[in-house]
């Protein structure tokens, strides 16, 4: 399992966000994307999640070029963005079970997700009543509700307290140990062993 990028350049409108970004990520590895506000962290993660098209550069999944045809990449990753992706009128369990079903998973992975992020007490609470931290956990629980080798995480720690930051770090470490990959943008160092760094302020590749 591997994800690599070669000389990725992005323009928004006519403005240059970043250029010539490259990285190479193998199974079990994580990439920490750093940079000040506006350096293009979110943009890079959205490009990796195929929500944006870069103006130049190539992407490879398992050494297959997915720049044009992303068929092999489909369903291989999860993207956690700034938005909570929750329907306020559905309960925590209903929200998660929809995403599990949407990705072709059954009840078992739903229970795993609820356990993994300690949501058991909240499972029948409508998502509209959750606090910001609880919403974030429910959102992160999608990572376990349907397994995928690559996690793309944009500010996964925001609104989490120290206990849940540790919990999240544990889930991420398990994911990496099992051979998974992760791409994350955070302000603080997660302290993941052997994680690579990509500093967008430095304006070059890792």
């Amino acid at each position: 399992m591997s994800l690599s990028a070669e000389n990725v350049t992005c323009l928004r409108g006519d403005r240059l966000v970043f250029r010539d970004i490259s990285f190479d990520l193998a199974g079990g590895q994580a990439l920490w994307v750093r940079g000040r506000n506006g350096a293009g962290k979110s943009t890079l993660l959205r490009i990796a999640a195929r929500l944006l098209r870069p103006q130049a550069g190539r992407f490879f999944w398992n050494r297959t070029d997915i720049t044009e045809d992303d068929e092999p990449y489909h369903g291989q990753y999860h993207y956690i963005g700034h938005q909570e992706v929750l329907k306020p009128v559905l309960t925590v369990a209903e929200n998660l079970s929809f995403w599990a079903e949407f990705h072709g998973q059954g009840k078992a992975s739903l229970e795993q997700a609820i356990e993994g992020f300690e949501l058991g007490a909240l499972r029948d609470t409508p998502a509209g009543l959750l606090s910001a931290g609880q919403k974030k956990r429910t959102n992160l629980a999608r990572l376990l509700a349907s397994p995928a080798p690559l996690w793309i995480l944009d500010e996964p720690l925001s609104a989490l307290d120290t206990h849940f930051i540790d919990l999240f770090r544990a889930r991420l470490s398990e994911h990496l140990k099992a051979g998974g990959l992760a791409l994350y943008a955070t302000h603080q160092d997660l302290g993941i062993d052997g994680s690579q760094e990509l500093d967008l302020d430095a304006g070059g590749g890792a």
Binding site: A49, Y79, V85, F102, G104, R142
Partner: peptide
């Protein structure tokens, strides 16, 4: 976003 990058 999540629907678009999903399997459909």
């Amino acid at each position: 976003d999540q629907l678009v990058i999903g399997p459909l």
